[in-house]
């Protein structure tokens, strides 16, 4: 029976060049002295050659052709499907150059959206600031206007300040109409700060009525006067419900 050596198995590692320099030298020295290992190494080299150059029987050509056709039919998609999947895969896994273009495009779109949003929000904040950042002087002017408006509106209507509104006997002279037209400009100027659409509507309407009245001095203007009166009453109501005051910023209300 052939003698056994525990180091014989390491010959495979030696041939795989998997040993350190020291281990290799030690094993080579051992092989020189060990008959079992030397014999195995000689046989192993021969078997290694035989196995490495082993050639399996060639597959019949028709079988290989049939095999390739079957595999193509089974795993290669139809042209239309292939086209779809190619587009899909191109989008999901583009080639490196296309990936760079896509990344640049995404970056550009992202920056553009960011820029638009930033400017939109800054414009909004600027608009907001226009309302909020009213100077103390402007705030005082507005507050004074609200206070005085009642006085001169009531004065226009020839009514006592603390009296109830009685519009039945109300009359308006041309001078009063011109005086009111001048005051409208003050209201308009203030409204530019407050931007109240309802007030704007009344101001425009009142201005038109007053101009009609002033321009048609010789005509019967009783109808126009009635409309002016009604507009002034509406304006008065507007101030009374304090609509504009509520819209004023806190800073202005505290002045």
């Amino acid at each position: 029976m052939e003698a056994k050596c525990p180091k014989t198995i390491r010959i495979i590692e030696l041939l795989e060049e998997n040993l350190s320099r020291h281990e290799r030298k030690a094993l080579e020295t051992h092989i020189e002295q060990c008959e079992t290992c030397r014999s195995f190494l000689e046989d192993f080299n021969q078997i290694d050659q035989v196995l490495t150059h082993h050639q399996r029987p060639k597959a019949p050509d028709h079988l290989i052709t049939e095999y390739h056709q079957t595999m193509n039919r089974r795993f290669m998609p139809a042209s239309r499907q292939a086209g779809r999947s190619r587009i899909r895969s191109f989008l999901l896994y583009p080639p490196p150059a296309m990936r760079f273009i896509q990344a640049t495009l995404v970056l550009f779109i992202g920056v553009s959206i960011g820029w638009i949003l930033f400017h939109k929000s800054s414009a909004g904040s600027q608009q907001h600031e226009a309302v909020v950042q009213i100077t103390p002087y402007k705030a005082l002017q507005i507050q004074t206007f609200f206070h005085e408006s009642e006085i001169w509106l009531l004065d226009m209507m020839n009514l006592p300040q603390n009296g109830d509104l009685d519009i039945q006997d109300w009359k308006m002279t041309y001078d009063e109409a011109e005086q009111l037209l001048r005051k409208i400009n003050i209201i308009r100027e203030i409204n530019d700060s407050v931007s109240d659409r309802r007030l704007q509507h009344y101001i425009n309407g009142l201005e038109i009525l007053l101009l009609e009245m002033i321009n048609g001095k010789n005509e019967d203007h009783s109808g126009i006067v009635r409309q002016i009166r009604q507009t002034i009453i509406d304006l008065d109501m507007l101030f009374r419900v304090d609509m504009l005051k509520k819209r004023l910023p806190t800073a202005a209300r505290q002045v």
Binding site: M71, N72, F75, M76, P77, S85, R88, S89
Partner: peptide, 12 residues
């Protein structure tokens, strides 16, 4: 990702 053509290439 479901690309059968790509798997077809691996098969080939």
């Amino acid at each position: 990702a479901g690309d059968s053509a790509a798997f077809g290439r691996l098969v080939t």
